[in-house]
Design a protein around this nucleic acid. Structure first.
Lengths: 340, 340
DNA sequence: ACTGGCACTCGCACGGACGGAGTGCCAGTC
DNA sequence: GACTGGCACTCCGTCCGTGCGAGTGCCAGT
């Protein structure tokens, strides 16, 4: 119907204006700035309906309208695509990320890049261990009864753990252990690797048994423990700029970012195949994020995701732009990790 | 002289009161809360002198007095010691740091601990490479003409670099290279290690020459490049609590923390033997820190420092407490790193 | 050298008035 | 039936004037 359609245009216009001006938007201003082809009075009627349906609200009687979470949701789902990045922005992505030295460098550049592109807080998750594969296992003897186990994955991540051995360890045994470990695990997905440990125990030569048991235990712990999933956070300075959107108190949000609970949101979406996920305001279960939106997407090489990255900002944000930026950066990072 | 002495007591009282209340402190309140043994009128005279000398100032006529940077400096240098930590605080340090898994874990725990103890932003520098020694060098062949060089230091830091080789590499050569590298570098201070590369080139068997040259180049780069000095920052949420001290705008400070220029301040003091360094307000050359103070100290095992750690907060902070906390944490971290 | 008293200065909180932006509703028009 | 112009109303934000309280500087007295 003609009405419904125009009403959605009105909603879109409200979201766009409100995002750019931060002022509740009134019917008159709307009629002036957008070619809706109707008078303010008509727009007022549409607004009344939109308000009744819960898409917009008034901060107080006789103020302009402001989108609700539900309004942003509709806007994101049906009223906006992804705003294509400018050439300058695309070039910035390449310039920023090329020449990274190692994994940590890639991720910290990514987070700075995202923060700069979107002017929001950027969050990047380290590649999940379980989705990558073992490239190499290294064993270094650091004391007579102490080994350092270093796990190198095909995503360039390096994990290290100290292993306390039950007894003094022979040099030759270390070499043999190293060979045995690599023979067993090289190329295995980390998710599967833990399951190989029992086999390893069986096939190990007798004199290595106890050693393998100790190392195996630590290895399993390293492989399955997802608590160590690290996060890189950047751009918190951008929060100061939009402090007004958070009713003055940045505290809970900063705390949440440090607690790294946000990562749970980022993680819970890796299965979707490359779609950008937007969580708006109250949709974020966590209370500290009730005034914030999270735009996230999984990155990875090829079909499976290695981790998530995204941004956190006020619900009043430029969704089309941010969604495009997040997706573009994720794609580029995915490529980069596939190469190295 | 009696006057001078009492004037300093007055300054100390002003700093203490102002730090705890955040209100400009007046002569009457001062006389009530402290046993200075004189009347408010006398205190007023002292205050007038202190103001003339530049130790305190009035926000506006007929308000109380507030310490200047110079006033805080005098307070720190001559009027306060380090407030001993409570038993609970000491215990918290142990509880927090014991059981750390690896270097990154130690440092991120440290930064959280410091932030929690001081209620300020905490900053910890990764151990400087040049001060630590090589524990092990690992070479992993990741493609026919591509090696991954992993450097493990005695402080538990792991650095990794890809090496592009001039030609395909033989498996046996990799093993020989590994042995050669460890034989040459094991135990060497990283600062000295770069100097050993030429020797290595001379003594290497002929068939390894080209390989050693490629690896050596990357190794030198890794050893001398101090730009990679990483920083762990935490407790930024604490800034929100003291936002009022920064005239409302946290922006520059947050930006400075992200730019990691603060590390320069932290680094520039490692030579001093364990003394806590305090930089107050304008003493920090960087403009964004003009309203902030930095309390820092070097940490390390034994005589030489491995890196710096400290806190950043408003000039209006509890210096005795924060200095004590920073020193205690640095000592504990130093011990911890010496053990592992 | 210190003290009590006193006049003076300001900043700040309170409160009323005002203007403006925006709304809802209604009668009129195409 | 959908849209429009007009109108009365509401309410927020701002401005301004006032009063109060805290604090000071100075001075005369002990």
């Amino acid at each position: 119907m003609a009405h419904d359609d125009r009403r959605l245009q009105v909603l879109r216009a409200i979201v766009q204006d409100y995002v750019s001006t931060n002022d509740p938007v009134g019917s008159k201003a709307l009629a002036e700035r957008h070619d809706l082809g109707v008078s303010p009075a008509t727009i007022r009627n549409d607004m009344a309906v939109l308000e009744e349906q819960g898409y917009i609200t008034q901060p107080h009687t006789s103020a302009g309208r402001v989108p609700t979470d539900k309004g942003y949701r509709l806007f994101v789902d049906r009223l906006s695509g992804l705003k294509p990045l400018s050439v300058a922005e695309r070039r910035a992505i390449e310039r920023f990320l090329d020449g990274a030295l190692d994994l940590h460098d890639i991720l910290s550049r990514t987070v700075r890049l995202l923060a700069q592109l979107t002017h929001q807080v950027a969050v990047v998750q380290y590649p999940t261990l379980s989705r990558s594969a073992v490239r190499h296992l290294e064993v270094v003897q650091v004391a007579t009864a102490r080994l350092l186990l270093v796990l190198i994955t095909d995503t360039g991540r390096v994990e290290q753990r100290l292993v306390e051995c039950p007894a003094d360890v022979d040099r030759d045994d270390v070499a043999e252990l190293r060979a045995l470990l690599n023979q067993t695990f090289a190329g295995a997905k980390l998710a599967d690797a833990a399951g190989l440990v029992p086999d390893l125990l069986e096939t190990a030569p007798p004199q290595l048994r106890r050693l393998v048991a100790a190392v195996g235990a630590v290895l399993v712990e390293t492989l399955v423990e997802p608590g160590e999933d690290r996060l890189v956070v950047g751009g918190t300075a951008n929060l100061a700029r939009v402090a007004v959107d958070f009713s003055g108190s940045l505290r809970p949000l900063l705390e949440a970012l440090e607690e790294q609970v946000v990562v749970l949101r980022l993680i819970s979406e890796v299965d979707t195949g490359g779609a950008v996920l937007v969580r708006i305001g109250e949709e974020n279960a966590h209370e500290a994020l009730s005034g914030a939106s999270v735009v996230s997407v999984g990155y990875g090489s090829g079909d499976h995701a290695l981790g998530g990255l995204g941004i956190v900002g006020p619900t009043r944000m430029d969704y089309p732009m941010n969604m495009a930026a997040v997706r573009a950066v994720a794609r580029y990072v995915g490529q980069l990790l596939a190469e190295s």
